[in-house]
Design a protein around this nucleic acid. Structure first.
Length: 482
RNA sequence: GGUCCCAUCGUCUAGCCCGGUCUAGGACAUCGCCUUUUCACGGCGGUAACUGGGGUUCGAAUCCCCAUGGGACUACCA
């Protein structure tokens, strides 16, 4: 069986983190079974849909490495077009078929009348929003055609069959929808635009989508789609309704929970593979319980059997850790490139030697979880000439041995003509302090650190000092001496 | 309100389908120790969970029912 999956976003905003997750699952599955991943744009909501958002979402997907095989920019003539706004004639044609078979009918009810009906049935404790059987009068068709000829614009409503429907969902198992669950529903709006549950079915059917992996929020609606597949005498795809992402308060993930748009993570220079890694694990489990991987590494073992059925809280703390793990996997030369790209123009990092840069990132990546944190860390550790009087530093300065070390280091640093001190030089200083000044143990190392860095703690001096410009060392020593 | 879905450490989860190997495993976070004469990274260890109640069974985290809690849907949004 040829597997064809799709990701079908609405271009009404940036790519949402939840959308990215379902896109990822679809991508993973298509790769796992050698299928085709289709990108379809669901832009039938003319009010909110914008072409620029489509572009932005595509960029976000690309950033994540989720590349589609078919889509508006990679059309297959057999299945396109891929924007619903460009398929309006198709929806009209299929709607007409349903009308002809009396599986759907014209509906002239106004919004106000609808409201009234709804209010009445709710007041009676009945089925709110169920319009079953209301318009089944056969004479109404001729009358409807007359009205249309006169210029009235009706909606088209699908006649919901009064029977149970059963779905075999890959995640939820067997789901039974009772016969009176939904009433006749609109498939074509009076504006001529199709509704979601209808065009989704027409498209999935025509695009020969074999598996629909989507959010659980569509589970209830699936019964409408099942009805339509039956009306079209088409075999429904295999469905997998993955659980939703929620916030700390267990409510649906929204803006008030913080960063929910993928582009925000891109701007913050999160590693795309780290985001994919984290998102994959939020609802799917690795058979070996491995928790750090790149998406290419798991395509061979990805399947639809390992989804969890309950929703997951989106947790930035764990994402931070995952990002740090990926950061430490990047080679130093690649990391140098990444860092060079985000450092402010004219930053001292850029003018250093290749060797210096590699050693620098090697040192920094042990200290942080995000690339962006490397810049302030580097500034503080290496280029900062100022001395900040922390309690820790004050304590070290109060020892009687420390001033001796400072005056010695100050004089020694002053003698240096090269740009950087070597590790050997550091050893010489250290030996002198130990032998000639008679300082050893904690006072030696802490004092040396204070004299050279102006700080109470930090990375190993033998790695740090060769990276620190002598000019900075001189200024620090001068300030400490004063 | 109605219909549907869900329920294991604070969080993500393994185990559940095919009951015993579960005194419930892993990861994040947290705490402690080791390493580093500092910090971080790393290593080791601790605290911490089967929502409740019935039933089936020799035996239930695993199967069934009810309750409770959470969520989704209930649009001429997607």
């Amino acid at each position: 069986m040829t597997v064809r999956v799709r990701f079908a976003p609405s271009p009404t905003g940036y790519l949402h983190i939840g959308g990215a997750r379902t896109a990822l699952y679809n991508w993973l599955y298509s790769k796992a079974v050698g299928g085709t991943f289709v990108l379809r744009i669901e832009d039938t909501d003319l009010e909110r849909s914008k072409r620029e958002y489509e572009e932005l979402q595509k960029q976000d997907l690309k950033w994540l490495g989720i590349i589609h095989d078919e889509g508006p920019d990679k059309p297959n003539p057999k299945y396109g077009p891929y924007r619903q706004s460009e398929r309006l004639d198709i929806y009209a044609k299929y709607a007409q078929q349903l009308i002809d078979k009396d599986l759907a009918y014209y509906d002239f009810t106004t919004d106000e009348e609808l409201e009234a009906i709804k209010a009445k049935s709710e007041a009676e404790g009945g089925f709110a929003g169920h319009y079953q059987g209301k318009w089944k009068n056969p004479e109404m068709k001729a009358e409807a055609l007359k009205k249309i000829a006169a210029g009235e614009k009706p909606a088209i409503r699908f006649r919901a069959p009064m029977k149970d429907f059963t779905l075999q969902d890959k995640v939820k198992g067997e789901v039974v929808y009772p016969a009176d669950m939904v009433g006749d529903f609109v498939i074509m709006r009076s504006s001529g635009l199709p509704t979601y549950n209808y065009c989704c079915v027409v498209d999935d059917m025509l695009m020969e989508i074999s598996h629909v992996i989507r959010g659980e929020d569509h589970l209830s609606n699936t019964v409408r789609q099942l009805m339509l597949y039956e009306a079209f005498k088409a075999k429904p795809p295999i469905f997998a309704h993955v659980s939703l992402l929620i916030g700390q308060d267990r409510q649906k993930l929204s803006k008030r929970h913080g960063a929910t748009s993928v582009h925000l993570y891109k701007e913050e220079h999160y590693l795309p593979e780290a985001l994919c890694n984290y998102l994959t694990l939020l609802g799917w489990s690795h058979p070996q319980e491995t928790d750090i991987f790149e998406k290419n590494e798991i395509v061979s073992l990805f399947d639809l059997e390992r989804f969890s059925a309950h929703s997951a809280i989106y947790d930035l703390v764990k994402l931070k850790w995952v990002n740090g793990q990926h950061l430490r996997k990047i080679t130093n030369s690649d990391l140098v490139k990444e860092l060079a790209a985000i450092v402010p123009a004219g930053h001292a990092f850029l003018s250093q030697s290749a060797d210096w840069k590699e050693k620098c990132v090697d040192l920094l990546k042990q200290k942080v979880d995000f690339i962006t944190e490397m810049i302030p860390m580097m500034d503080q550790l290496i280029f900062d000439e100022e001395i900040e009087m922390s309690d820790e530093l004050k304590d070290i300065l109060s020892w009687e041995t420390t001033p001796k070390i400072i005056s010695y280091i100050s004089a020694e640093v002053g003698k240096l003509s090269e740009s950087y001190a070597s590790e050997a030089q550091l050893n010489t200083w250290s030996e002198f302090v130990k032998k000639d000044l008679g300082i050893k143990g904690k006072p030696l190392f802490m004092g040396l650190r204070a004299a050279l860095t102006g700080k109470g703690h930090g990375p190993d001096l033998k790695h740090l000092i060769p990276l620190t410009p002598v000019s900075v060392l001189k200024k620090r020593a001068a300030k400490l001496g004063a």
